Simulated scan of single mutants.
Amino acid sequence: LGAGKTVVAVVAMLAAIQAGYQAALMAPTEVLAEQHYKKLVAWFNLLHLPVELLTGSTKVAKRREIHSQLETGELPVLVGTHALIQEAVNFHKLGLVVIDEQHRFGVQQRAKLQQKGESPHFLAMTATPIPRTLALTLHGDLDVSQIDELPPGRQPIQTTTLTGRQRKKAYDLIRREIVQGRQVYVVLPLVEESEKLDVKSAVEEHQKLAEKVFPEFKIGLLHGRMTSVEKDQTISAFRDNQTQILVSTTVVEVGVDVPNATVMLIENAERFGLSQLHQLRGRVGRGVHRSYCLLMRGAGSTDATERLKVLEQSQDGFFIAEMDMRLRGPGQVLGTKQSGLPDFALASLVEDQEVLELARGAAFRVMEKDESLNSWPLLRRELEWRYQKMMGGSILN
């Protein structure tokens, strides 16, 4: 969370370009892709290296220009969303693929981008701290590095769980921070009122805060149903301090970087997983000022108190992810079933780390002896069957 993943990607990209290859960076949302693009342009322009951005919103003429520059090799770096894996996108010599928040993409999508080059090097990045056992299972074929330090000058974020009765306390803190020139996020779980779950919709919350609670401040609204242009306008207005409060659904969890924001108020915090809450909390505390994360608990959610306590007590994403996995199970931690995560009949990712390490070691030794697996026909057959099942019928080569 602001710990310097982008810098690592840039160093790898420069190494690829220096060796005569092209590099591609794929991010899950347009907001995030654009943020990466702006950072890369600022750095690479100094080295006179062109960078382009390709997303669903890219105009047809611009898209054609990018396609042709990629094929001739005059464009060394391309940033984008899953628009990068469309058939029309052909690289001259792709040497490095970087995927950000890679668990947000399906196995096939990641493979498609890698197939655009001849065995390009692969760097996966995520701000989601993944427990070691889960990392071994998901990324068993990768070398995993963890950046577990914060940049110098960062202060720990003060995290507090509140109930509805203590709402005034939260609003007082928000008012105090804005008067001092800071900004605030208010995050909600759903976009529209669902009859089953009494969740405040972002639209209503925005109206309530703007009319009744903070009429003296400017308040922005960000949710998943908006077009990417509307989202960008809203985020830019917040980044430039034209709005002091940003009411948002979880669209904000990845990639929005506003160092001036010091308060994160999360409504119905019990509805989020711990890892997700930790990521949301990482949107504040990016500047030099003291920051606060307020976890607002919904009525009748007493069992959630234990879970939320973990966040009050720890700022360590890996510890939090480990606890999250113990409490909710591995499939839930990543928030996606398409992560290719196996269902084990007997093994437990929480308890069986040693066995997992042994299995991984054995797999590497097998591959060293015979990469084709011809010496182990049963193992080969099982692997081919599992691979096809996972990849929707693709043949393992």
Rank of each mutant, 00 (worst) to 15 (best):
S248V: 15
M226V: 14
V229E: 15
E149R: 14
L142S: 07
Q180G: 10
I147T: 01
E193A: 08
V229Q: 13
T161G: 00
A237Q: 11
K218T: 14
F238N: 10
A210Y: 06
I157P: 11
H223L: 12
G181S: 13
V199L: 15
S248R: 01
R225A: 09
T163H: 10
E149P: 02
R175C: 02
G224S: 13
Q233A: 15
D257W: 12
V254I: 11
A210G: 13
I157E: 03
Q183N: 14
Q158R: 03
T163Q: 05
K212F: 03
D240H: 14
G255F: 14
K218H: 15
R239F: 11
I174G: 11
K200F: 01
K218Y: 01
R225I: 06
D143L: 05
L162T: 00
V203C: 00
T159S: 04
S228C: 08
V187H: 05
Q155S: 08
N260W: 05
G181K: 00
D198C: 02
G153L: 07
T159K: 04
H206P: 01
L197N: 05
K218N: 09
L221C: 07
V179E: 11
P152A: 12
L150H: 06
P151A: 07
N241C: 01
V258Q: 01
F238C: 10
E230V: 11
V184W: 06
K200S: 03
Y171N: 08
I147H: 10
I245N: 13
D148K: 14
T161I: 10
P151T: 05
E195F: 04
L162I: 02
D172C: 00
T249K: 03
V229A: 14
L188T: 06
D232V: 00
G224N: 13
T159A: 07
Q207E: 15
Y171E: 04
E195T: 14
D198P: 12
D240P: 03
Q155C: 05
G181I: 03
R225C: 03
V252R: 12
R225P: 06
D143S: 13
